[in-house]
Design a protein around this nucleic acid. Sequence first.
DNA 1: TTATCGTTGACTAATGTTGACCTACTGACT
DNA 2: AGTCAGTAGGTCAACATTAGTCAACGATAA
Lengths: 159, 159
Amino acid sequence: MPSLTREIERYINELFGADEESVVSVRRKELAESFGCVPSQINYVLRSRFTPEKGYLIESQRGGHGYIRIVRLSYENPEERLAHINKIVGERLTAPVCKKLLTSLQERGLINARERLIIEVVLRYAEELGRSEFDLSSYKRELIQAEMLKRILRSLMLA
Amino acid sequence: MPSLTREIERYINELFGADEESVVSVRRKELAESFGCVPSQINYVLRSRFTPEKGYLIESQRGGHGYIRIVRLSYENPEERLAHINKIVGERLTAPVCKKLLTSLQERGLINARERLIIEVVLRYAEELGRSEFDLSSYKRELIQAEMLKRILRSLMLA
DNA sequence: TTATCGTTGACTAATGTTGACCTACTGACT
DNA sequence: AGTCAGTAGGTCAACATTAGTCAACGATAA
């Protein structure tokens, strides 16, 4: 019982996959028809799976010869990657957001499972310390964890 | 007198069991039904038994086609190694000792360069926070860093 | 006896799917 | 050029389906 969204996601990834294409183009209506769903389902897939946070940009055009282009960003130089890291982590970091972020980073091959494990252990300890030992506000704890994650990722991206 | 929690824990371990399967996927509702308990019981089992500190990662998704995935990064659980980690890190941790320790771990192939980098970044930030932000004694800072390193190593080296 | 662990259920939040309605571009015909 | 019909894609809200959280209470072990 595979999910529609995941099937469409996989299909789009295959379009990229073939020869390291960094941009693919689809027609919303056709894609929807071939999956037997409503067109807006395609928007949902794009909105939930091909986000800037995951390294994608969407361009589209309506009307005759309309299209949807999905661009995969590479962040070649270190500065770009750094900026990207700062952006996706943000100022504060909550556990659920962090989880999603790490999953996404792992899927993109930017970190591996062991690295992720270390990061989770560390952030959990920071949270625990901040809460029980130092009695920090959740706001403050989130600031600290965001900063910690950014430092970790920066060091890895530049390595 | 097997407790529900232990039964569910054992069941999940069986799912990992035979093969070197390192990831299993369950549906919270189904699992709960098959054990005749409320769904939130599953969360309790995961929270208390399948933690990052014990070498597990949890990924989940709500909504239609939701799931809970449990990733195992380490199987065997030699008590000796655990004890060994406690011994080599000790109660307190100073920067020079830490450096030597990490070098040694890296030379023995127990961690790689990237993992070491994460650890160094994290401990340095902990030191910095402890000193400038919370005005902790060096004693307290060394305690915290020792605990942090032990947690990291334990999670990594239960394998 | 007391602190920790385990169990339960009411409430909350996230995700996926669908369809009705909205907006923007193209091209043909004035 | 201006207009208009046709052809795309966009938005949004309702609903269904999962999983998560939290706090109260019960059970167990130190």
